[in-house]
């Protein structure tokens, strides 16, 4: 059942020996102790477990390990650190853009994927990019403002 797999997570080479049918989320939250990606539904419908795979936001709860073999995975922990936070993370703090914060890791990931392919999105494009991420507390508008703030922060004055 178990196989030796190789992938890169937040810039670090990893070679776990696991059942390749297991979801990526199990590796991240288990062996790698990266708790940023959260379990929400197990069916790719809420976005709480989103991570970047080769720069694209995917639901790690339903991405099997075999599908990420040899690939580059970035979790919310890999976006930034306390010392060097990502512009999005700074903007989310500045806008106080959460309530409970359970969904926010996945939302930061989806937003990071958006900004990588569209560095200057409109508010409507931000919303559209986040439509597969659910938030139940109603912090949506603050999050959209935070993403737009990060865009502005990243632009030359």
């Amino acid at each position: 059942m178990s196989e030796r797999l190789s992938l890169r997570v937040n810039g670090v080479e990893r070679t776990p020996e696991l059942d390749p049918a297991l979801p990526l989320l199990a590796l991240l939250r288990g062996e790698l102790d990266l708790m940023g990606a959260r379990f929400g539904c197990g069916a790719g419908q809420c976005g709480a477990c989103n991570v970047l795979v080769e720069g694209r936001a995917v639901a790690s709860c339903e991405t099997p390990l075999w599908a990420v073999a040899g690939k580059d995975v970035v979790t919310v922990e890999g976006l930034g650190t306390p010392e060097r936070p990502h512009a999005l993370q700074e903007a989310f703090v500045a806008e106080q853009a959460i309530q409970c914060g359970y969904c926010v890791s996945g939302i930061l990931i989806s937003a990071a994927a958006l900004l990588a392919r569209n560095p200057d999105p409109s508010a409507a494009e931000v919303r559209e990019a986040l439509d597969r991420n659910l938030c139940r507390c109603g912090a949506h508008n603050r999050m959209v403002r935070a993403v737009l703030r990060a865009v502005t922060a990243g632009q030359p004055a």
Binding site: R29, D33, L34, M35, G36, A37, R38, F39, T75, V76, E77, G80, T81, P82, P85, Q89, F92, V93, Q96, I98, G101, Y102, V104, S105, L108
Partner: peptide, 23 residues
């Protein structure tokens, strides 16, 4: 005053704070 919430930095950095993260 609009003090910044104490828990937000941890949450945007993806730190373990939730019961789901308890090991």
């Amino acid at each position: 005053s609009a003090a910044a919430r104490l828990d937000i930095p941890d949450k945007v950095l993806g730190r373990a704070r939730f019961i789901h993260d308890l090991v």
